[in-house]
Design a protein around this nucleic acid. Structure first.
Lengths: 128, 128
DNA sequence: CGGTCTAACTTGCATTTTGCAAGTTCAATT
DNA sequence: AATTGAACTTGCAAAATGCAAGTTAGACCG
């Protein structure tokens, strides 16, 4: 769903998709194990529900996340796709920069900094 | 100038500083050699001048860029600080993700993907 | 099968941020 | 002194965000 990129620069284009206040925070939560609307809403950053609903749709439209099918008579959740899992290195780099240059930030779990996209994708596909 | 972070998560906090449509585009331009207001304005993404002025101030307030002193009787420019140069890995990761997952994006110069923060910092400090 | 509960949205509206066009300022020519 | 061009600034329209309050749709209980 290319809604027209600002330029053909891959950095600017990636930011057209991910460069807002919330998208990467949601993906971070998902990498840390969240997979329902409520899980995301519970995160300490306190995202408004309308923004959350909007971002989940956008991320899904871009193919970074998908809804889990939901067995007959049950609500589904969300999980990362392969493209979404590939955002892990970006989050790891962000986390390292934040820890190095900002004061009093908390540390992400150790496995998070060591994981690979394949790891989180494997965990995602195990998600119902 | 910590204007209050959304949470103590280093990822969310880094995004409080860098997570908007323009900040990283400006830093990208700077890494690619831009160092004046006009240079940034010339970039293909067509940033509005008021946003550009605002972002340059914010990035400076966060200590990611600084103005070059300007020898007596001449306007200065901008260059990256050490913290700013450390954003290079983030941009490289973004570039790789963009190239891998979006179609028809251009390729950044080869040296850009191979450079280290020390490299771009060295170049910055050579800037008048 | 009806009633209730809770997660998952949706809607309306105030606030903030962004975008665009037009100034204004200031140093460097001419 | 007048002119130019880069570096902002300002005013206002448009879009994104935030918040509070609704609405919908399965799940659970009787």
């Amino acid at each position: 769903m290319p809604a027209a990129f600002r330029s053909d620069c891959p950095i600017a284009s990636a930011l057209d998709i991910l460069g807002d206040k919330w998208s990467l925070v949601i993906i971070r939560s998902m990498m840390l194990g969240a997979h329902s609307f409520q899980d995301f809403h519970r995160a300490p950053e306190k995202i408004a529900t309308n923004i959350l609903a909007d971002r989940l749709q956008r991320l899904q439209a871009w193919g970074l996340i998908e809804t889990t099918p939901a067995r007959p008579g049950a609500r589904g959740g969300y999980r990362l796709t392969a493209s979404g899992a590939d955002i892990l290195p970006l989050l790891q780099t962000l986390a390292r920069w934040g820890e190095a240059h900002l004061e009093n930030r908390s540390s992400p779990p150790d496995w998070f900094l060591k994981a690979t996209p394949a790891d989180v994708l494997a965990r995602a596909s195990r998600q119902a």
